[in-house]
Design a protein around this nucleic acid. Structure first.
Lengths: 243, 243
DNA sequence: CGGGATTTGTCCGTATGTATC
DNA sequence: TGATACATACGGACAAATCCC
């Protein structure tokens, strides 16, 4: 390894606590050495020596960084640079959503507005970058949802895939990951919020409408279809407002 | 405390590691007892006894939860429920941005698209909910930026406040926090990306244009002004594309 | 297939710093 | 100021997992 973490540069006191200090050093180490996800990091013992801290502190620092998916630990093997996903966002938002769930689903209502805004706001970019294969795939997913709904089954996997594919043509990794993160939070906080037969039919129809609007490249209809897609959940939220 | 964390319910081994297990227990404890930010949690010793784990494991679990701002620790006093902010999103996104900075600022470019989409997509909701006080405040901030720019000073505080106030009338806490988080990431990853005199003038003018569009409630002009606001950074990113 | 080496996981005991009363 | 309760940090010991020969 080229760059070394200089041991105990600071003289004595610091406002920062020890593990956070170490975590910062490790992040700097990754940046300075231009490591990428999957690359190996020094062992715990090496980190202790390099940074001049005990193993406990180093381990707590590693825990912080694993929570952020900045590092990844394989038991008995080594520590590596993490996937840099938005797992932390999912966990923290999910927790907030679960905490507010007993009250009024406030977080969920706000989440829906964000999801809808993103999908509607990116409509023109999506339609202009959409290719035929992708459109066929979306159509196929909508059909699958239809079939499963008629058979009384859920279709969460298809729904997740649908909304992810919708964003794919943008080539924007951040948008894709935010979409996935928000979807996951939604699914955990409201696992079965819109399961009345009428709502399910409405949701399925909305997915079909989205596909249709994409095919004709009709932005207004697309926007309407997205709004219709979230309408059932919005209605349910309003009804449970004064619980 | 009403609900107790049952000690070692699982019989033997688990695929889950100890600290993550403990972290999950602590989250469940908060949820079951309906604690809110600022409420006190059991001491480390009590948690150890309750969950049947050593201090090390409990401490590492607490570290994970502090990284997510789910718990907060006051040295020498106690541990409490955290503010449930999006600090984790800021830290993880910032790190991704810094890692990709040397290459092509990919993350920053994607971030700009998200910020612009949110602000433009929420335009109609913003204008319809905007009151006169807020409009005055936005106007004042734009003027301040103008003055500071003419004096050769930076205006990052004013810029941050401006974009936060823009979202305030929505009353959507999640949107507000996402806006703040994305702004912070942007500021850290691109601390001085658009500092040429011409770009600064352009940015200031865009803020004025946003205020103007809000005053006349002209959605098209608002959308244009937002696009103009991010234009300098986009241009700079394109120029540095093939570094 | 087995065994040894390496690395992370967990625990304990102790000393220290810090905030509250 | 002192006493108390608490989190912080360290070092050592042993267990568990993984890899390689």
């Amino acid at each position: 390894m080229s760059t070394v973490i200089d041991p105990i540069s600071r003289p004595a006191r610091s406002t920062q606590l020890r593990p956070r200090e170490v975590a910062e050093r490790i992040k700097q180490y990754i940046l300075h050495n231009r490591l990428k996800p999957g690359d190996a990091l020094p062992t715990e013992a090496e980190l202790c020596a390099a940074v001049g801290a005990s193993r406990s502190s180093v381990r707590e620092a590693i825990r912080i960084l694993t929570a952020l998916d900045i590092v990844e630990v394989r038991h008995g093997y080594g520590t590596y640079v993490g996937k840099l996903s938005l797992a932390a966002l999912v966990e923290s938002l999910t927790f907030r959503g679960l905490l507010s769930r007993d009250d009024d689903f406030r977080v969920l209502a706000e989440l829906i507005e964000v999801r809808q805004t993103l999908e509607q706001g990116l409509a023109s970019a999506i339609t202009s970058a959409l290719d035929q294969d992708l459109h066929r795939e979306l159509s196929r997913l909508a059909d699958q949802m239809d079939e499963r709904a008629r058979a009384g089954q859920t279709f969460i996997e298809q729904d997740r895939e649908f909304h992810l594919l919708l964003m794919r043509p943008l080539g924007n990794e951040l948008v894709a990951q935010l979409t996935a993160a928000f979807w996951d939070v939604h699914a955990i906080v409201a696992p079965a919020l819109h399961t009345t037969p009428a709502s399910v039919r409405e949701t399925v129809a909305a997915h079909h409408a989205i596909v249709e609007a994409l095919f004709t490249r009709d932005l207004d209809r697309f926007t309407e279809a997205i709004a219709a897609h979230y309408a059932p959940v919005r209605r349910h939220l309003k009804e449970n407002r004064g619980l």
